[in-house]
Each structure stands twice: as structure tokens, then as C-alpha cells.
Design a protein around this nucleic acid. Structure first.
Lengths: 167, 167
DNA sequence: CGGGAATAGTCCTAGTTCGTACTACTTGTC
DNA sequence: GACAAGTAGTACGAACTAGGACTATTCCCG
């Protein structure tokens, strides 16, 4: 972003760097298990459950539905998960770990937790909480601004031609 | 990640959410310009410079070389940037904005800054600095742990027979 | 000055990502 | 009970992503 004179750019840049640092630290370990990050996320989320719908999985892992189809496809091809029908809702499908998936989960999940925790060995819990709070506040700024900018877009004509939600 | 009992998971989760919130807030605006995030990043980084090498671009935008080739290809196809030879180093190429690229930069960069700054309107500068510092510390944790785990991997035999791959 | 190590970019593969359009099913309303 | 509106998941296209193999060039050391 060149040298943006705005002070907030430094903060944003640090956010991006921090996130990427986490990703590469985490991913380095995950790759060794033969899974990708997204795949690991699914396995980890499915562990210790009786199965979850695509919708639930998407919400918990922050993976959007379009992406999810492909990720689940690949896991299913490797027989780590299985799609099953939802008894209550014909639109829905429940994704469950197969026994191989279960086994993999038990093998790699604790190991990955240990890997992650090594980064935090020397960090007191109060600081973790503090960091969490700082991040949450920052996130809320983005969410509020995002909402606002969507509303503005509605007013200024993008909405003229489209079905809109009544106030 | 299921309900990991580790306290640091809450922090990590918040980091991911925060980053994603930023991305979607920022991207919503960028898309309207007809560029992708990565493309915008390149244009913004190239603005007000006399051109940068792939290496420099990669470092500043956090885009890795393999990805960069494709992103620059697409921008070059749209005649927004141009590859030029580096006089000092035959391996290197300097990427420069064309005049169309320059013009686009002047049009969209300030607008995007304004968009971003709307999120921070009510935030005092001290808090920005504080957040930046918190993020930097967190990043340093990851980097240190990452380094460490790479060294460990070397010791324990991954180094013994180089070309090893998971199935 | 010659050869080995390091560096810059490209190419390739596999996978993730998003948005949009689409089908199938459900739910609320009359 | 039919119909409109909403929801769950899939299909598809374009782009980004990392990593590793490869080529060309430069740099370092003897």
C-alpha cells in the first residue's frame, strides 16, 4: 500500500502479517499430516460430534458453502467423511466422520493442539484474554463499517433495480 | 476447531474472524473497481514508485512469487502494468504502472483509503498504536514458534533423507 | 577466471476461495 | 392444499494460493 500516511494502515498491515504468520506456522504442521488447512479444519470440527450439516460446518469453520462442497468431496473420496441424509430436513445433509476419519482425528488433533500451544508456552492467560478482546473490538469496527457501507450503497442507487428488504 | 479446551484457541479464533471481517469489508469496496484484492494491492503498491521488482512486490504485498506471476500477467493483459528489464540484474524484472495504471491508481486509491478510514473514524490514535503493538507481539510469537519447529524437524530426521513426501 | 551456490522469475499441480445461477425442499400464508 | 418466499447444497468460472521443479543469471571463493 505504498506509504499510506494514514495511521491506521500500520495497524492493518500488522493484522495481515500476524494472520499470515499464524497461517504459515499452523499450516507447516498440518501439511505433514497429508491434509490441507481446510480439510483439517473440517476433521477437527467434526471430531467429537455426531455429525454436522454443511451449514453448521460452514459457520464454524468460516468456509463458505461453495468451497465446502469441494472440500467435503475430497475428504469423502478419501473415505474420511461421509454424507448422510438429514431425517428432519430433506434439503440438508449431515457430514459424519467415518471410522478412518475418527481415527485420523484422534491421531492428529491432539498433536496439532500441542504444536499450537508451543507458541503460547510463555504467555500468561491474562494476556491471551487481553489480545482476544483487542481483536474483538477491531473486528467489531470492521463489521460496523461494513454494514454501514452496504446501507449507503442501497441508498445511492444500486438498489433501484433490485428487490430490496423492507425496513 | 470443535471446543478445544485450550484458552489460546479463543484468541486464535478471534484472530481469524477479525482478519476475515477486515477482508470482506475491504474487498466489498475493491470489487466495485473491477480489480481483485491481489490486483488492487499491486496497483496500490506500485503507485508513487518508479517500479518494483517481483521480489520487492512480493515482500510488500505478502504475495508469493508463484502467485505473483499470474497476477501480474492479468494486470499486464489489461495494460495496467508493464514488465521492464532491470538494468542492474539480468534475472530481475521491474514492474511499472502504465499511464492507464497510473490513472486508475489515482482514481481508486484515495477512494479506498477513504473507505477504510470510515471504519476508524471514532478510534483514537493511541488505541491504534496499542492494537498494532498487540498484533506485533502475537505475530512474533508465531514466528518464533515457527522457527523453532523448523529446527526441530531438521534434528529429528526429516533432514536425513531429503526427498520425503507424504502419500 | 572458472565453478558451485544462491537468487529471480516462470511453469505446473492441487487445492481453496468467492460469487452467481440453479435445483430441490420447506415453511408460512391464504 | 397451493403458492410465494426462503433455505440447503451443487455447478461452474475466474482468480488466488503455496510449494516444488526448472531456467537463466549473478555472486562468491578459490
Amino acid at each position: 500500500m505504498a506509504e499510506a500516511d494514514a495511521k491506521f494502515m500500520r495497524t492493518l498491515r500488522e493484522l495481515a502479517r500476524c494472520y499470515q504468520a499464524f497461517e504459515s506456522f499452523s499450516e507447516a504442521h498440518i501439511r505433514a499430516t497429508g491434509l490441507t488447512s481446510a480439510q483439517f479444519d473440517i476433521i477437527a470440527t467434526l471430531g467429537n460430534t455426531r455429525g454436522l450439516s454443511f451449514k453448521d460446518l460452514g459457520e464454524r469453520t468460516l468456509i463458505t458453502k461453495g468451497t465446502l462442497t469441494g472440500v467435503i468431496d475430497r475428504l469423502e473420496a478419501r473415505e474420511l467423511v461421509r454424507r448422510t441424509e438429514c431425517p428432519h430436513d430433506g434439503r440438508s445433509q449431515i457430514v459424519v466422520l467415518t471410522s478412518a476419519g475418527e481415527k485420523l482425528f484422534r491421531r492428529i488433533f491432539p498433536a496439532h493442539m500441542a504444536h499450537l500451544s508451543s507458541a503460547f508456552a510463555a504467555v500468561p492467560e491474562t494476556q491471551l484474554l487481553h489480545t482476544e478482546l483487542t481483536l474483538r473490538r477491531l473486528r467489531e469496527l470492521f463489521e460496523a463499517a461494513h454494514e454501514l457501507s452496504l446501507e449507503e450503497a442501497e441508498m445511492t442507487g444500486a438498489a433501484r433495480s433490485r428487490p430490496r428488504r423492507a425496513a
